[in-house]
Amino acid sequence: MSKIKLGILGGGEDSLIGILHRVAANMFDQYEIVGGVFDAQHKKSLNFGEKLGLDTSRVYKDLDDLIEKESKLPDAEKIQVVSVLTPNFLHFPMAKQLLENGFNVICEKPLTTTYEEAKTLQKIQEKVKSIFAVTYTYTGYPMVRQMKSMIAEGAIGKIQKVDVQYYQGWINPLIHDKEKRAVTWRLDPEKSGISCCIGDIGTHAFNMAEYVTGMDIQKILADLNYLYEDNPMDIDGTVLLRFSDNLKGVLRASQIATGEENNFTVKIYGDKGALKWEQENPNYLYLLKEDQPLQVLKPGHSYNSDFSLEGTKLPPGHPEGIFDSMGNIYMGIANAINKADKFDGAYPKLYDGLRGMNFIEKTVASHKEGNVWVNMQD
C-alpha cells in the first residue's frame, strides 16, 4: 500500500509541536511528508522545506497556493491529509478551507477559538465525509488505552469519583511582568480565544476524563483565576464535574503551579477498585484494590488489552513516551483513511474537539456568572 501523502501548516524551524508531529507521522511508515506551509514567511518556509529534503515546489506561499496547486495534481500524487499546527486563531479558517476542498484534516487543539466555529466545522465534515482528527496527544499512550479498556470491562466496577489534574508552572516568568504578559500570544484573546489555561491544558484533562470513562460530562461549575486585573485570560482554575446525580468529579488546571513541569494525573475510582496514571511516568498504570496490594501494570505485557498492545512498539521495560503516543494517534488516522479501523478511540475525532470547545465556553461562562452550575448539553 502506498504511503499517505501528508502536508503540514505551521510547525516550522523553532516549533516543538512540529517535531512531535513529524516524528509521529514517520513512526509506522504510513505517511510521506510531501509539502506544506511551514512559516508565514515564505523564505523561511522554503529553507525549512530544504532541510527536510522536500521538493520545494511543494513548499507553498500560503494555504490558498497549496490548495490551488495540489488540487490540480492527479489523485495518486496530491496531498491527502493536512496537519494544522498553527496558533489557535488560524485553526478554524484553515480547517474549514481544507474540508471544503476535499482534504482530510489533523488539527492541533483547541479545535477553534469558539464553539460556534467548531459546530460549523462539524456540519461541513458531516457533509463532505472527510477524516478529521484533533490531537489530544495523551490518548495515544498505551497505558491510557489500557485504562480505558479496563474501565470498559468493569475492572474497577461502577465509577463513583473522577479526579483529573494538569499542573504546569511555565507562565510564572511572564505573568508577573506587565510588559511580558501584554505581548504573550497565549494571553491575547484575539489569537488564543477566550481562555488560556482551560483552553490549553484544561481541555486535555476534560477530554481524558470523558475518554477513559466513556461517559459525557453533563454539568460543570468553574472558579478561575486571572491573577491580575489587566490580564484577560485565565491561568488557573478548578472545575467541578457532574457526570450524573451520583457520579461527580473535579478538574484542576494551572499554569502558575510553581515548579511543576507537565504534571498531568488521571485518577478514576470505582466501587471495586481504582486506576491512576501520571503523564510524567506514563509507563505505569496503578490498580488499587481495598483488599489487595497495589498493582503496577506496564506496557508490552500479554496481560494488557489488544488496544494497548497495538500501540506498544517496544518490548517490556523499554519506555514509551510522548512521540509514541502521538505516533499511535497518527496510526489510527492512517487506518481510518485506509478504511482499516481496528479500535474505537484510536484517534480523537472532530466531536472530541467540539466537546472541548463547548467545555471552554461553558467553563468561562460558569465563572463569570458567579460560579454557577452550567449545563454541558445543548
Score class of each variant (00 low, 15 high):
Glu13Thr: 15
Phe103Asp: 04
Val82His: 04
Leu121Gln: 06
Asp65Asn: 11
Asp55Tyr: 09
Ile79Ala: 02
Met94Glu: 15
Phe38Ser: 08
Tyr115Met: 12
Leu54Tyr: 04
Ser15Leu: 08
Lys51Asp: 09
Leu99His: 05
Gln41Ala: 12
Gln97Leu: 10
Met94Lys: 10
Gly11Asp: 11
Leu9Arg: 04
Pro110Thr: 07
Gly102Asp: 10
Ile131Asn: 04
Glu117Gln: 15
Asn47Leu: 13
Val23Gln: 14
Arg22Gln: 15
His42Ile: 03
Val84Lys: 00
Phe38Thr: 09
Leu63Gly: 03
Leu63Cys: 02
Val59Ser: 01
Arg58Cys: 01
Ala40Asn: 13
Gln41Arg: 14
Ala76Lys: 12
Leu16Val: 14
Ile17Met: 15
Glu13Ser: 14
Gln80Leu: 03
Val59Lys: 01
Pro87Gln: 06
Val34Glu: 05
Phe132Asn: 04
Leu85Thr: 08
Glu13Arg: 15
Glu13His: 15
Gln30Asp: 11
Ser57Arg: 14
Met27Asp: 01
Leu90Asp: 05
Leu90Phe: 11
Leu63Phe: 07
Glu13Gln: 14
Gly36Ile: 01
Lys129Pro: 03
Gln122Leu: 15
Leu46Ala: 05
Leu52Met: 11
Gln97Ser: 15
Leu66Asn: 04
Thr113Arg: 06
Ser2Leu: 08
Leu9Thr: 07
Val128Trp: 05
Phe28Leu: 02
Met1Asn: 05
Thr86Pro: 01
Lys72Trp: 00
Leu90Val: 05
Arg22Pro: 06
Gly10Ile: 00
Val105Phe: 01
Arg22His: 10
Asn26Glu: 14
Leu54Ala: 09
Met1Ile: 02
Lys129Met: 08
Ser83Ala: 15
Glu50Trp: 03
Ser130Gly: 06
Ala118Gly: 13
Val128Lys: 08
Lys123Cys: 00
Val84Trp: 02
Thr114Trp: 12
Gln125His: 03
Gln80Thr: 05
Glu13Ile: 15
Gly10Ala: 00
Leu63Val: 09
Gly53Asn: 09
Ser15Lys: 04
Val128Gly: 01
Glu70Leu: 03
Phe38Ile: 10
Gly53Ile: 08
Leu66Cys: 06
Ile8Cys: 03
Leu111Asp: 05
Lys123Arg: 13
Ile106Ala: 03
Lys69Ala: 06
Asp64Gln: 10
Leu73Pro: 04
Ala118Met: 11
Gln122His: 12
Gln125Glu: 11
Asp29Pro: 05
Gly18Trp: 14
Lys96His: 12
Ile19Phe: 13
Asn88Ala: 15
Gly7Tyr: 02
Phe132Arg: 02
Leu85Asp: 06
Thr120Ala: 13
Ile131Ala: 07
Leu121Asp: 08
Gly7His: 01
Asn26Lys: 13
Phe132Gln: 06
Leu20Ser: 10
Ala24Trp: 04
Phe132Cys: 05
Ala24Arg: 01
Ser45Asp: 03
Ser2Gln: 12
Cys107Val: 13
Gly102Leu: 10
Leu121Asn: 07
Tyr115Leu: 13
Ala118Pro: 10
Asn88Lys: 11
Thr56Leu: 10
Leu16His: 14
Leu121His: 05
Asn47Tyr: 05
Asp64Met: 03
Leu16Lys: 13
Gly7Gln: 01
Lys72Tyr: 00
Asn26Gln: 13
Lys127Asn: 13
Lys72Pro: 00
Leu73Thr: 04
Met27Ala: 10
Asp64Trp: 00
Phe103Met: 06
Ala40Asp: 13
Lys43Glu: 15
Met94Gln: 15
Gly11Pro: 11
